[in-house]
Each structure stands twice: as structure tokens, then as C-alpha cells.
């Protein structure tokens, strides 16, 4: 049995109440000869309710974790989690995309690896790329970055912790780089 996006949203509202700050049900039409639609739930939640929200999703159906992503928006990091529930039903999969803001002063989230061990890969990647700590994550070794990667450098950050000063500026011309350094041409 599958639930529609609205029904899932009702259940989440029941569980989370005010912790859902904002939501939207997006509908997409697909197909040429027999157009049909599917829906996605996009919601913003309070960071304190994160664990509760994930548990609520796991109660509805054992989900498939699509991805964990994050964006540096200045004062905070916006974390984006996407779960697919009711996969393996034709036209039935509903993606639940959860966004939450983490202030840079407190970049900590509870892990979800106790519910889904496969999420370890995602959490380790986010940890090294954005510097978010996951409470309860057992394996904290680097995933993609080398083991001797500089401490406190996170490639996806846009602030002083970013890697702007570590990359070679292949897209800049030699002239531009020399100008920047104050060197003379020739």
C-alpha cells in the first residue's frame, strides 16, 4: 500500500507540528502520449527536530536515501536530505526533501547510520567536504580526500575554510596572475 504526498505530509505534520517551518508539494508531469504526474515533498524543518523527522519517515516506510547535500549560505550551512519512500511501486515513489539550517557556530547533527548503515558514505563525505560533525558516526576517516588533507579545509565552503587558495587557477591567464602578484610583464 502506498500513500500519496498529501497523506505523507499529514503524517509528518502530526508528528512534527511546528517544527515544519515551510513546505511545498511539487508536482511534475512526465510522458508524451500518456502524461501522468508524480509528486515530491519539499520542506524546511527546525534543526532540533531533525532526528524526529527522520524517525517519522522511517515509520512511514523504510526509505531509500537519495543524497545528503549542503550549501554554504554565509552565516549558516543549509543541509539538504532527500529520502525516497514507497520506491518499488510504479509511479509511487515520493521523494521527501528536507532542508535545515545549521549555524556555523554549531555544526553538529545526529547520525542516521544507526537506522541505515549505508548512510555512512554520505555522512563521511559531508563531514570532509563541509565540516559538519555527525554525532555517533563511528568511522570518521576521510572518504574521498587523502588522509593527509589539511585540517580545517573544506572544499565546499565559501568562507575562510574553503579551498580557494589551494587550487591552481588554470582558468586565469598568466598575465592576470602576474598582475595580481604585482609582477611586471615579460
Amino acid at each position: 500500500m502506498t500513500l500519496t504526498a498529501e497523506e505523507i505530509l499529514e503524517r509528518l505534520k502530526e508528528k512534527l507540528g511546528d517544527a515544519i517551518l515551510n513546505y511545498e508539494v511539487k508536482e511534475y508531469k512526465m510522458g508524451v502520449k500518456r502524461p501522468r504526474t508524480y509528486q515530491e515533498i519539499w520542506m524546511e524543518i527546525n534543526r532540533d527536530a531533525f532526528r524526529k523527522a527522520v524517525e517519522a519517515i522511517f515509520e512511514i516506510d523504510y526509505p531509500h536515501l537519495h543524497f545528503i547535500a549542503g550549501e554554504d549560505v554565509g552565516e549558516a550551512l543549509t543541509m539538504i536530505y532527500s529520502f525516497g519512500v514507497f520506491h518499488s511501486h510504479p509511479w509511487g515513489e515520493v521523494s521527501i526533501v528536507m532542508k535545515l539550517d545549521l549555524p556555523k557556530s554549531n555544526l553538529v547533527l545526529p547520525t542516521i547510520t544507526d537506522l541505515m548503515i549505508g548512510a555512512e558514505t554520505n555522512e563521511r563525505e559531508i563531514r570532509e567536504m563541509l565540516g559538519v560533525e555527525f554525532e555517533g558516526l563511528k568511522n570518521k576517516r576521510h572518504l574521498f580526500l587523502p588522509d593527509d588533507w589539511s585540517e580545517g579545509k573544506y572544499p565546499w565552503r565559501r568562507d575562510e575554510y574553503g579551498v580557494e587558495d589551494m587550487i591552481k587557477h588554470t582558468h586565469k591567464s598568466v598575465r592576470e596572475i602576474r598582475k595580481q602578484r604585482g609582477e611586471q610583464n615579460g
Binding site: M30, V32, K33, R34, R36, H64, L65, E93, I117, G118
Partner: peptide, 30 residues
């Protein structure tokens, strides 16, 4: 399910999971 595997690996384990079936797009939707 717990390891979050996808595609033929998941299907061989008996999970009827296929993006072309679950959230179809383009001609798959027809």
C-alpha cells in the same frame, strides 16, 4: 535496503526498485 544499494544489486536481492518504474521520465513514462 539497509546498505542503501541501488540498481541491479538491489534488484538481484529482490527489491523491485527501478527509477524508470518508480518515477518515470521521458519515453519511460509512456
Amino acid at each position: 535496503l539497509k546498505l542503501n544499494v541501488v540498481g541491479p544489486t538491489a534488484r538481484a536481492a529482490g527489491i523491485r526498485m527501478d527509477v524508470r518504474q518508480d518515477i518515470p521520465y521521458d519515453a519511460y513514462a509512456d
